[in-house]
């Protein structure tokens, strides 16, 4: 479904991503872990078309991606951002946020679709005409997920979708993402700094450090400690150390 080959992303003279290659099958989840500045989010933003200055080869569903994406691309690929406080327009109601994709793509029947979308992410219909600042962090992230699903995409790019949330809300959102994937056969690429979160949702994952993907492995290898790169081992140790406390 998704293939990325030798992706290089530049910010001016700096190469933030240096030759990253991975592939994700249809209906699969792929996770990218790394510390801040490792380039993990940059990979995702380049895939989403939010960053023009890249080279390499990326395809989604067999279609090669150019620097500018057409409208059709955005019907197939959507993204959920880290900070639910920042990813919703502060002056637009939830209703407006959810109608926007429908208007852009000329999809009718907005009323029914919006009600259905809210129900799908388990939000009460009373939030429909509220503003983002009237909702809790978890509710906002559900709205962001509902918005991403409005045009029925095949691929969802998740940029630290739970790291700004409380742990109990994180569990709810992770369960929701798992349910949605089952129901809609979505393909996920998820980025996080949290190894346990990635391993929970993604059977396959890549570890990034300094703009390079230093290791690719399966979640079960990671759990079992079958890792080859010292950075992966470090991250794993930090994560398990606290669990065993």
């Amino acid at each position: 479904m998704i293939s990325v080959q030798d992706l290089v992303v530049r910010f001016g003279p700096v190469e933030a991503v240096r030759g990253v290659t991975f592939a994700v099958g249809e209906g699969q989840s792929f996770g990218i872990v790394g510390e801040s500045g490792s380039g993990k989010s940059t990979v995702l933003r380049a895939l989403a078309g939010l960053n023009d200055d890249w080279s390499g080869r990326m395809t989604i569903g067999g279609v090669a991606l150019g620097p500018k994406r057409g409208r059709a691309f955005f019907r197939r690929v959507q993204m959920v951002f880290q900070d639910p406080y920042g990813s919703l327009h502060p002056r637009q109601t939830i209703d407006r946020a959810l109608s926007e994709p429908l208007i852009v793509h000329g999809i009718g029947d907005a009323d029914r679709r919006i009600r259905q979308a809210l129900a799908e992410v388990a939000l009460p219909s009373s939030v429909r005409f509220r503003f983002p600042h009237q909702l809790s962090g978890g509710q906002r992230q559900r709205v962001a997920i509902a918005r991403a699903l409005m045009c029925e995409p095949e691929v969802l790019l998740l940029d630290e979708p739970t790291s700004a949330l409380d742990v109990s809300v994180q569990a709810e959102v992770l369960n929701l993402l798992a349910d949605l994937q089952d129901r809609r056969k979505l393909t996920y690429v998820m980025v996080s700094h949290n190894l346990a979160v990635i391993a929970h949702l993604c059977p396959q994952l890549g570890v990034m450090q300094g703009g390079e993907m230093v290791e690719m492995l399966s979640a079960s290898d990671l759990r079992a400690g079958r890792v080859s790169h010292p950075h992966t081992a470090d991250l794993r140790r930090l994560s398990t150390e606290l669990e065993e406390a």
Partner: peptide, 26 residues
């Protein structure tokens, strides 16, 4: 540069629409 404008860009909205409907009101 905010995420909510990035999110609007990801709907596939044209630049004119983003400026007119999302940035100007703010």
């Amino acid at each position: 540069n905010t995420d909510y404008i990035a999110a609007v860009r990801l709907t596939g909205a044209s630049s004119a629409r983003i400026v007119l409907r999302h940035i100007t009101p703010l």
